[in-house]
Design a protein around this nucleic acid. Structure first.
Lengths: 328, 328
DNA sequence: CTGTTAGCGCTTTCAA
DNA sequence: TTGAAAGCGCTAACAG
């Protein structure tokens, strides 16, 4: 029982000498009524500063006009472009975008999704850290699309970094490297499993020795901290889970006086920082913005009842820059 | 007229043999009714899987339970931490966060705010590019809090980078620099005006010559492109609008073979990239996360009718790292 | 402490 | 093509 923020449909109806239904239709189904009626209503509405109440419409239609996106960490540079893409697509489809940050915590993620579910038309879950069971439970209640998480039967957009990573391994092999190390990221990340597996598979195929060290979180500092282990592995090149880790690695290598790429090669992934680093980082492209856009499009089309292929995979490729060279 | 996503309050009421009001109270004002009634209702509700409908509640109470934040560019590293802070504060206060990205376009910003106004309880406008008049118009319709934009009378949180920038100029003067250049950012940005003014004032006070070059947008590439102008100014040190610009400048300086800090000094602002750059960038701290949190807190408390000081200013300081030294 | 009764602002049959 | 009326699910006086 509070005051309405602006004029209501009834006031416009009264002022325009028509019924509420007519005003309603002028806004949502103008083709149902005379053009001049529409024009008249619109003019009166504009004069009064009327804006349809989103909430009331949502209650009446059962559609919230809102989708949510939840990510593990907004501050991680991989996500902003993705969110931006999602935002643009949502906007274009007439939806508002609710944002959630789970802080890499599956429990928080679960709570967030539970909170969003009843107030949105659908949810985009990016790099989910929840169990498959939790995800399926939520998906049963509300349209859900996954990004970088592969749960069969659910709509999902997957950035196929594995292919790019395989290319990275081949590139290193061609350069003459015989032993490389994979610096892994978040253990519960699908992307991390994919990349680790891709490194191993390609390494085996090419007869390379591959070690692994675990950075757990994807941060600059984590990269710095792994350098001892990386160097200790005896490898001559490292492939990092992502650019952030690679950046830390590069910095720590520099302070140790190890020249990149001539004494050690480094490859990142995602291409979110790579171009602005020095030396510019060789990395695997990821197109996060496209993924965000695709996810929302998938979601929206599923709401419209359209039946898109529920599994969209985005290609990646190796981007050569300045951090790889033959081993010393 | 669509199906409700789950059981409604009426079904719970029927199943629990109480009235709708009782169920409603059990959820929103449990202290108003007997503990056992609450327990009983809750149990039945749980069994049925009842979740209160957010939209219906919003329509009835006139409170959306949602606040919006609109920023010029999510992909700019200054904003994610700020958004993160806002999100955390909103979450804590029981609000959901709607996100808008204006893409640095005042018109888009205006439209976004207009769209959010009727469906939120309030809006946080970060680094607004709108005219003061537009802002006041929106503020008249809906609680608004500004971040890094100073419109008298409106609640706002201001990051006082001017003080930090002044310290930066002093630092450079102490080092022996006699001529410096300010590399400005977005023309319509309040922060940019503040920083430019601070450089000028401090320069005058200390008897330094200060030039200026304009980068317009805050991007790495814009920084790169300004290097000719920067060098052409004859200054021995540059203070950039922000870290992103400074990063581009550093990179371009490096490719020209100009050693930082020994041949040229550079200072950034915001401290969002600085620590991870090489060499680590001397910069002015900004605490974006605090600003986001403060903005939402201000908004929420104003909704509660509380009367906080509508102008909160956040301190900053110079963070010395490795990009400044005496002039050659 | 609990139930009854009106709405919140909009959409949507159903008639006219 | 337009209007009247009945809700959407919930909250909030007002009684009891």
């Amino acid at each position: 029982m509070t005051q309405q923020r602006g004029p209501t449909i009834s006031q416009v109806a009264a002022a325009a000498n028509v019924s509420k239904s007519t005003v309603s239709r002028a806004f949502s189904r103008p083709e149902m009524i005379t053009a001049e009626t529409v024009a008249h209503v619109m003019e009166v509405a504009a004069r009064l500063g009327y804006v349809p109440n989103h909430t009331a419409r949502a209650l009446s239609t059962g559609r919230a006009g809102t989708v949510a996106i939840v990510v593990p960490d907004i501050a991680n540079p991989f996500f902003p472009p993705l969110i931006r893409g999602a935002q643009a697509a949502a906007d274009q489809a007439g939806f508002s975008l609710l944002l959630g940050d789970s802080d890499e915590d599956p429990t928080r993620e679960d709570v967030l999704v539970g909170k969003f579910a009843p107030q949105t038309d659908g949810i985009v879950l990016v790099s989910s850290r929840m169990t498959e069971e939790q995800i399926r439970t939520h998906a049963a209640r509300r349209p859900l699309v996954l990004v970088n998480r592969d749960v069969s039967g659910l709509p999902r957009v997957l950035i196929d970094t594995a292919t790019g990573i395989a290319a990275a391994v081949e590139h290193l092999a061609e350069l003459g490297h015989r032993h490389l190390v994979y610096v892994s990221g978040p253990a519960s990340s699908w992307s991390n499993s994919e990349r680790r597996r891709a490194v191993r598979a390609a390494g085996r195929r090419l007869g390379l020795q591959v070690s692994a060290v675990a950075a757990r979180r994807s941060t600059y500092d984590a990269g710095v901290q792994q350098v001892d282990a990386i160097l200790g592995s005896g490898a001559s090149a490292a492939i990092a889970f992502d650019d952030l880790l690679a950046q830390g690695i590069l910095a720590a290598l520099a302070t140790r006086g190890i020249a990149v790429p001539h004494q050690f090669s480094v490859i990142g992934c995602d291409d979110v920082l790579a171009a602005t680093m020095s030396p510019p980082l060789t990395t695997v492209s990821a197109h996060g913005g496209d993924a965000g856009r695709a996810a929302v499009d998938l979601l929206v089309s599923s709401l419209d009842g359209r039946h898109d292929d529920p599994r969209r995979v985005l290609e990646t490729s190796l981007v050569l820059r300045a951090t790889t060279a033959p081993p010393p």
